[in-house]
Computed example of a mutant assay.
Amino acid sequence: MDTLTHNLETQLESSITNSIKNSMTYAAYRALMGQLTESHSTTGLDKSEAMVAYTALNEQRMKRWDKTLKVPVDAQEKIAAFKERVTWLVLTESWCGDAAHVIPAINKVAELNPNIDLKLVLRDDHDDLMQQFLTNGGKSIPKLIMIDNASGTVRGTFGPRPAEATQLVESYKRDHGAITEEFKEILQGWYNKDKGQHTIIDLLQLLGVS
């Protein structure tokens, strides 16, 4: 192993270790969302009124998905059969619309297998980790990093969106050049109709049990 590769691996290991040490459970993250909504605040470096409003909206979205999102029986059986011990470390922020739709589905899957340990960290507080898991050069969230608990190695990633939603986004960008407010409404409609099912499908693939 050359020196550069060794240094990069050491940096990644350090970023992951520190992030897990400072992480939250899903229950703690949901409690934080509620507190932020009540205090009219938001996570992240941008504390603008727009971000505060997004956080309040996302609190309602997550509350709805926590109550209504269902994992199909066949998927439950596949998830339960996963035998390796892993940590799902997720980068997120309270204002992120994709995170509000995706993370409840991630939690539902993790709850079905005690071998999956779900941890969440805020992106802007863990830039060193985020910089190592960019999407097309951007700090897109949510980003799930699957870590093998025995070896500490990264087994794979998921995010910021399920594959089908990503295709929808890329197709719109090709046709229109950029994401518009109109498209954001279209994407929210897609999430509402999908009910977390394509996130679950992609997570099964991440686990290797699809």
Rank of each mutant, 00 (worst) to 15 (best):
N136D: 15
I116K: 00
L134H: 12
S151I: 04
D124S: 12
N136K: 15
L118W: 00
R123K: 13
D117N: 15
D124Y: 05
N136R: 15
N115I: 03
L144M: 14
G137S: 10
D128R: 04
Q131R: 07
N115C: 03
S140C: 11
P142E: 03
L144C: 12
P142N: 07
R123L: 10
L134V: 10
K139M: 13
H126N: 15
K139G: 09
N136S: 14
F133C: 05
K139R: 15
L144T: 14
D125M: 05
L118N: 02
L122C: 02
A150C: 11
K143W: 07
M146C: 14
K143E: 08
N149S: 10
G138V: 12
V121D: 01
N149F: 07
G138W: 10
L120W: 00
H126F: 06
S140A: 15
K119D: 03
D117K: 08
S151A: 11
N115Q: 13
D148V: 10
L118M: 11
A150W: 09
I116V: 10
D128Y: 04
D117F: 02
Q132Y: 01
K143M: 14
L118C: 06
R123P: 02
S140I: 06
D125F: 00
D128V: 02
H126Q: 05
D148G: 09
V121F: 02
M130T: 05
V121G: 03
M146K: 14
K119Y: 04
I145S: 04
M130W: 02
I116S: 00
D127K: 13
Q132C: 00
N136C: 10
G138C: 09
R123Y: 09
D124F: 07
D125N: 13
G138E: 13
R123D: 05
Q132T: 01
D117P: 01
K143H: 11
H126P: 00
S140F: 10
Q132L: 10
R123H: 11
L129M: 01
S151R: 10
R123G: 04
R123I: 08
Q132K: 11
A150R: 13
L118Y: 02
R123F: 08
K119V: 07
I141E: 03
M146F: 04
N136P: 05
L122P: 01
D148T: 09
F133D: 02
Q131E: 14
I147P: 06
P142W: 02
P142V: 00
R123W: 09
L122V: 08
L120V: 05
N136G: 09
N136A: 14
N149G: 08
L134A: 11
S151G: 12
K139V: 09
F133N: 03
T135Y: 13
D117E: 12
D125H: 06
D128C: 07
G138P: 05
D127I: 14
I147A: 07
N149I: 08
H126C: 03
D124P: 10
K139F: 13
K139I: 06
L122Y: 08
K119A: 12
I141S: 02
K119N: 13
S151E: 12
K143G: 04
L144S: 04
G138N: 15
I145P: 02
Q131H: 11
M146E: 14
N115H: 07
I147Q: 06
D125Y: 05
L144A: 11
A150T: 15
P142H: 01
I147D: 01
D127G: 08
D117C: 04
D124V: 06
I141N: 05
M146W: 06
I116P: 03
H126A: 08
N115Y: 00
I116D: 01
